[in-house]
Write a protein that binds this DNA or RNA. Structure first.
Lengths: 222, 222
DNA sequence: GACAGAATAAAACTTATGTTTTAATTAGAT
DNA sequence: ATCTAATTAAAACATAAGTTTTATTCTGTC
């Protein structure tokens, strides 16, 4: 019976894996509400009933999708790179911002979880609590540490929170607002889609703002 | 016949106006897709068929709602206040940011159009082109002028664009990300909802970043 | 007071979508 | 080779939402 079970599982994984793959793609594109079970199954080459059979329902499929692609994304973009103590805080902020943008803007499946996360920001589902605790909070804590160090001299927690939020807000804007930005600057030289230029700007803008905070603090103390 | 017509119009406006009011509220709360005709009519105390009778369909009702509440919002928050030439660029940026946040975060109907605009950023409808041209572009142009003046010395258009975008991005983040921020900092002292503290932070962060850009430019020239 | 047209209301219709049922098929064990 | 359990497929079902139809009520005019 046990052997049978494993062998059967392999067969099941074929369809199950194809659905998880298609679900990652479709949920990333359209969000939870916008995605349809029919579209996921169509792309997976599976029958509609397969979602019920392998995952119970759309909601559970979504949770499984979050879990699965979270693992994939964090293998590709390990956050500890931005925590590398041998680098300066400024370098670490650069790495963080570049990685944070890549997570959401890259082509292909490595960015699916980042896109799911971006969707949760603006269209929260029941999965938000898990996403916050397992993905957003760790990243935000990492970012806060970098910001705290950049300001120096044990700044107030609220200052750190707000500056970190400004960094995240700028990044997310470039992910969400692409249709608007594309219309504002329809000429070809629009920055939309040029991840490197976007990253370079956010890094510079944020570093300047945070360092100014540090300088003022020093000035106050003199 | 003409007299009859005006009198009839008054009667029609009763229901029509109530629907327009309810539509502003519901579309602002839930966005175009999330809003339902049934809910709008329920709140308006009108029959479902009234939408078809007075506005043809949901899409046209939405366009009318945009048009109507756009006028209301710009009466309440005239953008020219942030263009007042007698004020310093820094003051004008403060006014712009405060107004921009108020447009979206205020209680009541004066913020409905701002919320509709915020929805268009993340869930574009066919109305986006109109919203961009009639509401977003004028504001962005105003903001760009302030930023250009803050940097000084005729900065590259792309620099102005990017810095302006950073300002807008920070503002919008605080509107969208409230569920996430509320979970990140569940303790009472969360900044969510404290519009004034949010505004003060964004003003400071942005002014510091933009002024740093100005200083470097000056430094380059020496 | 009766009539015409506008406005409202009730109900049905249509489509999209998640879910479930039931039948057919497939794979492995004996 | 046959049987059992797992898997897949087809179809039906249920619900929600936009739209439309039809009947009723209301308003102002003659």
């Amino acid at each position: 019976m046990t052997d049978v079970y494993t062998t059967e599982k392999v067969v099941a994984l074929d369809t199950r894996a194809r659905i998880l793959d298609a679900a990652g793609r479709v949920f990333a594109e359209s969000g939870y509400r916008g995605a349809t079970v029919r579209e996921i199954c169509r792309r997976a080459g599976a029958n509609i009933a397969a979602v019920n059979y392998h995952f119970r329902d759309k909601r559970s499929l979504y949770f499984e999708t979050l879990r699965y692609w979270h693992a994939v994304a964090f293998r590709k973009y390990p956050p500890h790179v931005a925590a590398d103590g041998s680098r300066s805080p400024g370098e670490r902020l650069s790495i963080f911002i570049t990685q944070f943008l890549s997570r959401m803007l890259d082509e292909g499946e490595s960015s699916w979880f980042g896109k799911l996360m971006a969707w949760e920001y603006i269209e929260a589902t029941e999965g938000l609590d898990i996403v916050v605790e397992e993905a957003i909070r760790p990243l935000f804590t990492l970012l806060s540490g970098i910001v705290r160090e950049l300001i120096g001299d044990d700044p107030p927690a609220e200052t750190v929170r707000l500056c970190s939020t400004s960094v995240v807000g700028q990044c997310l804007y470039f992910v969400y607002a692409r249709p608007v930005v594309a219309r504002l600057f329809p000429d070809g030289d629009s920055i939309v889609g040029d991840k490197d230029r976007i990253a370079a700007h956010i890094i510079r803008f944020s570093l300047d703002a945070i360092r100014a905070r540090a300088e003022v603090k020093g000035g106050d103390q003199l």
